[in-house]
Design a protein around this nucleic acid. Structure first.
Lengths: 338, 338
DNA sequence: CCGACGGGGGCAAATGGTTGCCGCCGACCG
DNA sequence: CGGTCGGCGGCAACCATTTGCCCCCGTCGG
């Protein structure tokens, strides 16, 4: 951006050939001066770098990628860009990628398996690896992706594919224990999308924890994991006699709270609500949401790190899912049973 | 993803050479069969396409882009991925791009000019064109970008660079008229980032409209265009005697409402609040926000369309900013002066 | 019957890097 | 003093695709 005076010959940028000529060496030497430190004499390398800088030379990443596919590009496919769940994940993933010299492509799949397939088809050839954040694809489709490029899935376990997940079971257990401790005995789980792996895990953990503690557990749904989905859930909830509910995620929980308030249900006096994920916003909705916190920041970082590991050594050995801890954050949406 | 049976030889994908050999033609003919419709005999082309499909051939976009830079990639740089203002913009931009056979890279600049510069440096060489959504860069830096790649700026006017803006002046005028109609006479403008072009426009329009209508106008700020920024603004506002305020954007307005409520100020009874942009969420905060609506969906579509136009015919002629209409949406955060 | 024309296809260069291999030359060792 | 070795730089092939140019051949008009 102009520190090295705009030379005006705007359209075609200088190549290693130009640098080579100006520095009186061969193009290959220029290439090595940049990508093979030590291989070329220090003085020569210095001179080349100086000349390159004067000419405003920047490597062409496309040409770079041709021989062996090293494009320095990674991709993260998210189910829904507008879901705050992904905010911290994307940010931390982006940072980790950049710190390692990679660029992260963020792609929105609009909560649709079809869109996700299309996006992958477009993106996969370009990138060196991909993070599937809460994918709606089938296990076999994901394995097919993993066969083409190093892949990490988030919040899901797929055989033979690296993954990063939160400890759903333990987190859910904490939530149920918390509610039981407040005297609740009849509880409802608000289910998320059927294609969601995490939803299955959470519902199962919910049922098991309830059973062990001798509580009545019911399931309602599926609902879209959005505010709108929460509004429908609110309707359905009023027909239930439960005094506490745990939602698939925070967005659903917040939407439900909003709908219930509108329907005249007082939270948490008449109904306690627990969410999942501790997304941006869950602390300043009214009432502030009690939720099972996922370490979102570490999530993105971890996923990209695993990806980078796969890139560095393509041994298919490791595939134990990275399990990140979850903890309960108690806020204002839960209270002692009336 | 596997309709044409996984052939197992996973790592290296077939090239036009493989297809050419299998179809008994030259590689160049294969290339033309795909990218130069009509140039090659219909039967031959059909045969080639059939063979290519059987082999599971997909063009390598990297090699495609080498000769002339046609990567079919566009980028949109947003100031803050987590700002709902961009949600609809990104979605519609993405859709428009995909419909035209392009892939849109979404890049977050974290509200920082430095991060934006870095992101551009990384991204620019890859893409055919770029949309700068509310850039924090200087005019000359933007022009430098535009010299390298077709560029469209959003919410800002830069000489010699195509742009898409909303009618800030008219929108602000509607807002002020609305408040004046409710009997307000002393009003405060909550300013956004100093580097924001739109902020300048809005404050100016605010002042002028107030003057014409004989109202007292003051300015407070700058504040970060975020919920947090709004909280600080709330503090500052309590020192003012105004009975109505217009914020730089919705996020700031919502944050301010939240802070004021916390400070015991009743909205809209004691203070009317107007936002800008009509973002996702402004309708279901409490109270629902009266705001100047920008046609967010059209924004993204329009920007990408202008970009595509520039790509199709590189004439530097057109540079009148596309002006999208703004209208006032009246909700619960404004009321007659007490 | 010959020449012009044009449709359809192939050859090869070009795009901008990377990299295996080779060769030069100076230094060091025997 | 000759042989060897290693540091350093150059040559050229390679990656997958596009495209300018040419050629072959069939057709049609003169």
């Amino acid at each position: 951006m102009g520190e090295t005076g705009d030379t005006g010959n705007s359209r075609t940028r200088p190549t290693i050939y130009d640098v080579a000529k100006a520095a009186g060496v061969a193009p290959s030497t220029v290439s090595r001066a940049f990508s093979r430190p030590g291989r070329v004499n220090a003085e020569t390398a210095d001179r080349i770098r100086r000349v390159a800088h004067e000419l405003g030379y920047r490597m062409n990443p496309i040409a770079r990628g041709l021989p062996d596919g090293r494009t320095a590009l990674l991709a993260i496919i998210v189910a829904d860009l507008t879901n705050p769940f992904f905010f911290e994940i994307i940010r931390s993933a982006e940072k980790t990628a950049i710190d390692s010299g990679y660029t992260l492509l963020v792609v929105d799949a609009h909560e649709s398996g079809e869109a996700e397939r299309l996006a992958l088809e477009r993106t996969l050839p370009l990138v060196e690896g991909v993070v599937l954040a809460t994918s709606r694809l089938s296990d076999s489709a994901i394995r097919a992706v993993a066969k083409q490029r190093p892949t990490v899935v988030m919040n899901r376990v797929v055989t033979d594919v690296a993954s990063v997940i939160t400890d759903n079971a333990r987190g859910m257990r904490r939530a149920v224990e918390h509610l039981a401790g407040l005297g609740h005995t009849r509880m409802t789980y608000l289910a998320g999308p059927e294609a969601s792996w995490a939803d299955g895990m959470r519902w199962r953990a919910f049922r098991e924890a309830s059973q062990e503690l001798g509580l009545k557990a019911r399931r309602l749904g599926p609902f879209a994991p959005t505010l709108a989905g929460g509004l429908s859930a609110a309707q359905a909830l009023t027909a239930h006699t439960a005094t506490a509910t745990v939602a698939y995620n925070d967005l659903l929980a917040i939407g439900a709270m909003r709908g219930l308030t509108r329907l005249g249900v007082e939270i948490p006096r008449e109904l306690s609500v627990v969410g999942f994920d501790n997304i941006f916003g869950s602390d300043f909705c009214t009432p502030p949401l009690t939720t099972v916190a996922a370490p979102l920041r570490h999530f993105g970082t971890f996923a990209v790190q695993r990806l980078l590991n796969q890139l560095r050594n393509p041994s298919p050995a490791l595939s134990v899912p990275a399990l990140l801890p979850a903890k309960l954050v108690e806020r204002g949406s839960t209270a002692r049973r009336a």
